[in-house]
């Protein structure tokens, strides 16, 4: 073996070693969440730090689903996230289309403003939004949350949709207009079918963003029946002393929709993250 081939083997081994560390770091927390959620409560303290419990149970999940309000929270979160995703995608598609296809006065300024809204501290508007929405009856309501989340996510989604519209050649629209479409018909018949996958991805991005939101939900929602999943989980922790197994079972359930949408948008991660380098 030459020094060159030895060197290459070392590199290859090193890479796998480094990658394993990354995988371990990425997955261990999620693994532990799962590990505790399936441990019987009585074994929790005696086997607290062993990697796998000697007995496995789904009891925690059953309690969470049957005896707590988590199913309601879950449903509330689904309502809010889906509502937000749909509204945002609709509004952002229109705006993204305008950015992609038109030259107009104030375009640069509007784009800059959109970018700016992504930079300023959202906690800053938490108090004014509460005060402005209260007289409108939008506090303590899922509709209110949808309105707020839609506004917050619209700039990012606009940039995302713009990049999807940019990917549709302008010639296609021109051809459609020559073939007899108005610009609007060309949008509906030609451009939209081609951006549909992009719209699905946007839907996924916004759904996950809305699913994670905590602070505004904490501030704006009071009544138990309107609580979203993140708030519910947080309340659960502060109210009931510590039932670790149930908490982690609930936490693991919160992962499910996020993972589904993550799978949905895998292909578009790069587009999404570069379009909204500002967004988590």
């Amino acid at each position: 073996m030459t020094a060159y081939t030895i060197n290459r083997r070392l590199w290859s081994t090193g890479r796998y070693l480094a990658l394993s560390l990354y995988v371990l770091f990425a997955l261990f927390p999620l693994f532990w969440l799962f590990r505790v959620s399936i441990s019987p409560t009585k074994l929790l303290y005696t086997e607290g730090t062993s990697l796998w419990p000697s007995m496995v149970t789904i009891e925690n999940y059953l309690i969470v689903l049957q005896d707590t309000s988590f199913p309601t929270y879950f449903l509330n979160s689904v309502t809010v996230s889906l509502g937000t995703a749909l509204c945002t995608t609709l509004i952002a598609s229109a705006a993204g289309y305008a950015f992609s296809r038109f030259k107009f006065k104030g375009k640069a300024i509007i784009a800059f403003l959109l970018l700016l809204t992504q930079m300023f501290p959202l906690v800053m508007v938490i108090a004014p939004i509460y005060r402005l929405m209260q007289p409108l009856g939008l506090t303590d309501s899922l509709t209110g949350l949808i309105v707020v989340y839609t506004a917050f996510n619209t700039p990012f989604a606009t940039f995302l949709m713009q990049s999807f519209f940019d990917a549709v050649p302008k010639d296609l629209e021109d051809a459609a207009m020559i073939d007899g479409c108005t610009r609007f018909q060309a949008l509906i018949r030609i451009v939209l079918p081609l951006t549909l996958p992009g719209m699905m991805a946007t839907l996924g991005f916004i759904f996950t963003a809305a699913w994670s939101e905590l602070l505004f939900a904490l501030m704006l929602i009071n009544s138990e029946s309107q609580v979203t999943f993140p708030v519910g989980l947080l309340n659960f922790i502060s109210k009931f002393s510590v039932d670790w197994g149930q908490m982690m079972a609930a936490g693991f359930l919160a992962l499910i929709p996020a993972c589904i949408f993550f799978a949905l948008i895998q292909k578009y991660l790069v587009t999404g993250m570069t379009a909204g380098a500002v967004k988590g």
């Binding site: 050649p169 010639d171 296609l172 021109d174 051809a175 459609a176 020559i178 073939d179 030609i190």
Partner: peptide
């Protein structure tokens, strides 16, 4: 009717 460089087929 127009024929485009990119063909612009739907």
């Amino acid at each position: 009717a127009m024929v485009f460089q990119s063909y612009a087929l739907y």
